[in-house]
Design a binder for these strands. Structure first.
Lengths: 163, 163
DNA sequence: CCCTTTTGCTTAACATGTTAAGTTTAGCGC
DNA sequence: GCGCTAAACTTAACATGTTAAGCAAAAGGG
């Protein structure tokens, strides 16, 4: 019950469409607008958004299993399989079988991968800083709060983490 | 040199990574959590999220140029080109050259496409209604407000709509 | 210990994202 | 009208999203 104002005047059962679509679309647009700022930097370093996420998760988490890496970096398993191949061929990461559970693949950043992140991170930080300056750190903080609150509410009502 | 990395306590300039990544990631995760609810319905009707967006934009906008359609449905031009082919082959839409400007392609929903939307929309509405019930309409409204405010702030500071 | 189920990927197949280049048609300036 | 630039797609090429199968290793159960 936010504001059910009747925007158009087409009374045919489709009045709710705009509202229904607004949340997924708004999330999509907002993300796209943010990534626009980072894309030039990523392209300059020849990495995709997804590769960037994977590398950063590895930097923060250390060596981890492929499944956990996929979860934290928000990429699907099949995508990760392909990405690990190219990232390894590029020398940024290395993979090996977990000796205790040979089903698992342990992934780790190489020294070269670490150097890569150290070189690119400052630019990423600068872009983010500029973003904060332009739209306001407070506004971003509020948005993050709402996003986290929303996700927490969703987790609570349906599938918390793993059941 | 694989998995020794001491994840925590690394004071080396990467402390901000989590914060920098949080906004894009949060937007991605939130959207993914919402779409999870809609995916079963979309799969049941054999349409992708993108196709669904395109069809709904056509329903609301009427016949429009491909470029405007792409903008409103948030899909890239190359993607739309491919999608229009399959949607037309499926009989849900129809395209024709604009006689006044033969560069443009006018896209419109067919009667069959309209019927398709009328059959599927109620389910979409039901899913959205349940989502509102679970997380709270207020919470969703607040999130949408923040998202729109954020996007407006971004537009204002950089590229409004089209300049 | 054998069999079944589950886990953790990996493949395959197809749609879309993303960037760059190519094509056709409009619009402009001279 | 001619040539040039821009607009509106379209194609191409490769990466990723998404779903369904497939495979080998680990867990359980009898």
């Amino acid at each position: 019950m936010a504001d059910k104002a009747p925007p158009p005047a087409v009374r045919d059962g489709f009045e709710l469409d705009a509202a229904q679509r607004s949340l997924p679309i708004a999330l999509l647009r907002a993300r796209e607008m943010v990534m626009e700022r980072f894309r030039p930097m990523l392209n300059a370093h020849d990495v995709s958004e997804q590769q960037w996420r994977v590398l950063r998760v590895l930097r923060e988490s250390g060596a981890i299993d492929a499944t956990k890496l996929a979860e934290r970096a928000c990429v699907l398993a099949p995508s990760l399989t392909r990405m690990l191949r190219s990232l390894e061929a590029r020398g940024l990461i290395e993979t090996r079988r977990d000796p205790k559970d040979r089903r698992r693949t342990r992934v780790a950043l190489t020294a070269q991968g670490d150097a890569f992140l150290r070189a690119a991170s400052p630019q990423s930080a600068a872009i983010y800083a500029q973003l904060e300056t332009e739209v306001g750190a407070q506004r971003i903080a509020r948005l993050l709060d709402e996003l986290n609150g929303f996700m927490a509410a969703l987790d609570q009502s349906q599938g918390p983490p793993k059941r």
